[in-house]
Design a protein around this nucleic acid. Structure first.
Lengths: 236, 236
DNA sequence: CGCGTGGTTGAGAACGGTCAATCTAAGTGG
DNA sequence: CCACTTAGATTGACCGTTCTCAACCACGCG
């Protein structure tokens, strides 16, 4: 029992497999040492549980170590709007920095394990770690690039959106060292459709269509990419 | 002549009317003094000219002092996609921070005058001005909030999008001290439609429709809001 | 004052949404 | 271990919003 705990404690920023993707990327070795001391590690949420809620005060940046989540907001009718999916190794919480209160709710799509960098520590770290704020600024601005991608996506046809969704998930998983051709979609058709701005029936139909064209093989949540070239052709 | 130059030089961060909106917001008086020394002021671009191009190296953050601009990207067919409009007092350039090269092109919609905070100075300033990076981070993260708004907008009907567009421009102008009920749209119907993801004919039709309902009065580029309540009703 | 760009208006077509029925997979309890 | 249950996924039919294409108009510039 205490052995298990020790084993988990042994995972620090220095030896974490997210090192190249998480906050430490861009920091010097010695600075990573500082970081590991203040990161609140090994937080757990079960499927459906929130990591943080919209409106709650901003408490810090979160790094997903395992599992995936959805980042959502609500329109004026109270309907959930899925702003983004978060895959392992990705950071979240930037929606709280601007107003010091979260603009979105983050909900686990399956059991997740995450690290948490508390606000006070961000301030403290940035004082004696010059590169630290730069890394954070860089990360938050990369959201801007993602936003551009999203705007472009919202102009394309339903087919192009689903194709882009598959490609994006594939590439993000590849970055993390997972297979980029065969994976499990942790979100429902409803959630995919919500995120892409199309009806869930349309998602189903297009998956079916892509399968008929031998582009992918879909069995409920399992997805296998058979023909990347054809899939890219649908990005238009 | 030299008087004119002196007069222009006299506009510094300390007495600029953008003080409450620009980078200095959130900085101490003394820090603003540091800022004014490094800001490259009084840059001009004519309508159609670029402030920066996609792909060019990131050289710093830009603050629009007067005039407006469009921030655009290109889809894979080379079509312009207008990511955002920039009104006076707003910052731009964050699309270059993440990769140190601009992801978007910024083009003047009319004659613009802007300040420029060079990259090197950002680094220098952040060293002896602890709050500086925080302000930048906050500003860049507010892009995230805007992104959420944009995603929600892309789900709504063409009518709701046009209504939201009018409301947004109105509120942003109000923030700057301009009239929020009567103003000039510096962008074409084509550009509005492009930005909102609808055909320019649809923009025209909806403007016409809103006018028929006595919500607005439109004469080409001049727009007057007659009934804010009704307009808000269309935001759904 | 004519020309051209940008804006308006109309008609038809298409894409995707909605509603409804059915199917399937993953639990759940006997 | 199997029947039962239920939420999610699929499929079909129909309908509506918005796009596209095309013609026409008007404002501003030379």
């Amino acid at each position: 029992m205490s052995n298990t705990l020790l084993a988990k404690s042994a995972i620090t920023c220095e030896n974490c497999n997210l090192e190249r993707l998480c906050i430490p990327k861009g920091l010097k070795r010695s600075d990573i040492g500082d970081l590991k001391l203040v990161v609140n590690r090994n937080n757990i949420r079960q499927k459906g549980e929130a990591i943080y809620h919209a409106g709650s005060p901003f408490r810090g940046i979160v790094a997903l170590r395992s599992g995936s989540a959805k980042l959502l907001s609500f329109d004026r009718n109270g309907n959930e709007v899925i702003v983004d999916f978060i895959l392992p190794g990705e950071l979240l919480g930037f929606d709280g920095v601007s107003l010091q209160a979260h603009n979105c709710t983050a909900v686990a799509l399956e059991t997740v394990n995450f690290c948490h960098l508390p606000t006070q520590q961000i301030a403290a770290l940035s004082a004696n770690t010059p590169g630290f704020y730069q890394v954070l600024l860089q990360r938050s601005c990369s959201q801007f690039d993602a936003q551009v991608e999203k705007v472009m996506l919202s102009r394309r046809s339903a087919e192009a959106r689903v194709a882009a969704f598959i490609v994006q998930i594939s590439e993000r998983l590849k970055l993390r060292g997972y297979s980029d051709t065969e994976f499990r979609l942790s979100m429902s058709r409803e959630e995919i459709g919500n995120h892409l701005g199309i009806a869930h029936e349309t998602v189903s139909r297009i998956f079916h269509h892509f399968q008929a064209l031998d582009i992918v093989e879909v069995r409920t949540k399992r997805l296998k990419i058979l023909d990347k070239k054809k899939l890219f052709g649908f990005l238009h």
